[in-house]
Design a protein around this nucleic acid. Sequence first.
DNA 1: GTGAAAGCGCTAACAG
DNA 2: CTGTTAGCGCTTTCAC
Lengths: 321, 321
Amino acid sequence: MQDIADRLGVSRSTVSLVLSGKAVGKVSSAVQKEVLRVAGELNYHVNDLARSLRTGESRIISVIVTDISNDFFGRLTFHIQEEAKKAGYLVLTINSNENIDEFDRMVGMLMSKKVDGIIAVPPPEGGRSITEIKEHGIPVVTVDRECPVLDVDYVGVDNYEASRQAVENLVAAGLRNIGVVTLDLDIPPLNERIRAYKDVLTEAGAADKIRERRIRFLHEDSEIESMIKEFEDCDAVYFTSQRIFTRAMSCASHTGVSLRKDMCLLCFDDISPYRSLDFDIRYVEQPIQEMARKAFSLLLMRIRGEKNLAGRYLFQARYIG
Amino acid sequence: MQDIADRLGVSRSTVSLVLSGKAVGKVSSAVQKEVLRVAGELNYHVNDLARSLRTGESRIISVIVTDISNDFFGRLTFHIQEEAKKAGYLVLTINSNENIDEFDRMVGMLMSKKVDGIIAVPPPEGGRSITEIKEHGIPVVTVDRECPVLDVDYVGVDNYEASRQAVENLVAAGLRNIGVVTLDLDIPPLNERIRAYKDVLTEAGAADKIRERRIRFLHEDSEIESMIKEFEDCDAVYFTSQRIFTRAMSCASHTGVSLRKDMCLLCFDDISPYRSLDFDIRYVEQPIQEMARKAFSLLLMRIRGEKNLAGRYLFQARYIG
DNA sequence: GTGAAAGCGCTAACAG
DNA sequence: CTGTTAGCGCTTTCAC
């Protein structure tokens, strides 16, 4: 910076002013042009570390999800990134792998990095870390999974309602023998989806048909095979997330066991590409982009100092049958 | 930091030493314990901005892909992140959306942020930016797409060979009337895959059966429908990437048009979950995790000062029939 | 083994 | 409109 100041015979502060866009009505536009020109020639880039150290804002946020390679989280992250891009923020993405220790460790690193805000999908027991973030005065908004008790912004869908609607549709279509497959994770969305399933079946007088199968995260393949066998006589199978659905399909293809082709397959999350299958495919679609938008705009408000009470923003998921 | 120094009646440098792990044989272990204890109590986190400004390393790398919500890039990014995590690096992920202007702009921001290195999937024409990164002395490795001419590390698969093997298998199975569908992007992997397809068909004396359909990126839906109609009489359809395959399936489900169920569907990238379909599904699987590992370890070597000539690391993709 | 002091590159008063 | 100056929080000689 000194360099470019010297070449023009002006002071560093003048250069700083124009380079940080705060030169309006302070630096003659002739000088501004010159500064920009020389900066371009020298292929100069401001040092954001120094700038951030000084100003206290890094213009970096972080998105912590379970696993970025998961379709739902990948899309969510993508849309958050696009919003961030518009607002001039870069985003550090992090995978917690549903692991509270990794989550905590990464949160620690983020505190050190002085990110301006965090959008997180908290893993089971993630509440403590979320609180820690807040205590450090860093804005945080949770997505997909709500941390009860905590006073923290939350964006998600009404899992119970959407799940209920979907299962009701199957029941209305005469299906009763519906099995449910879920990941063995104690997280609100999954719990709600299953609760709705049980409620609907119970209300339909088919409580005895309730069959739930929990697949351990990261142990999917070995357990899915037995699930498929167990659900052989079902009319329909309800997968509570895309991840479990995809793994089931993939696993089925590898092991040779397979679901009956006349089954109805219901999934929470968009699986429309699979509709070319013989199966009767139904699914629930979450408005991912809107959720991403809302989450980012909330975070931005907080970053800009909004102090009012945390909100709870519930979107409607759509059943496609 | 002063705070914790004061409480213990030592100087800031002593605290710095132990907090940055450089206290061995310099600070009494009693003092070290105390420092750590107080730091914990105060819930203190070093300010990495200041540290980085001083040391010149940010411990942040960046991964620039086309679109993180794309399955292939999502997995690639995920595995790079896991490697980075082990090495103590955080990663800024960026979507170029195949757009050279966005790519250039984001590269500019990264230069300012002083990231320690960049792993990039360059969009068409991305060569110039890659050169710019190198000129700034920032280590960079390219993945998936090779920038010819440039002296820059590259990690990818042998697209021609894998594609060739796959198409040869179809031909050996008696299929001749094979259509190819690809994204309308001028990038080496796609070009190579198609070149192999044409070569194989030509060598089999079926040059007249070559049928190529290019779908414009972001205009998929409208163009896929007509592709499906055009390829109605094919024995097989070869999709050059998972993205185009998934979009085709999804689009088919929305519009009602559909590929004949007795067709053979070949895809470059893993589509094993679709094998439960009636279609005869074949695919080519890239060793994503190994590629991610290689890319990161290469980058790390460069960050650590390795100056030797850029390498070209080709992995073998596996045909699954 | 410990402390004092300089400085990384930038911004923001404030004075001119 | 432009320049001088102090200092963001840390690391790192170098002297004690």
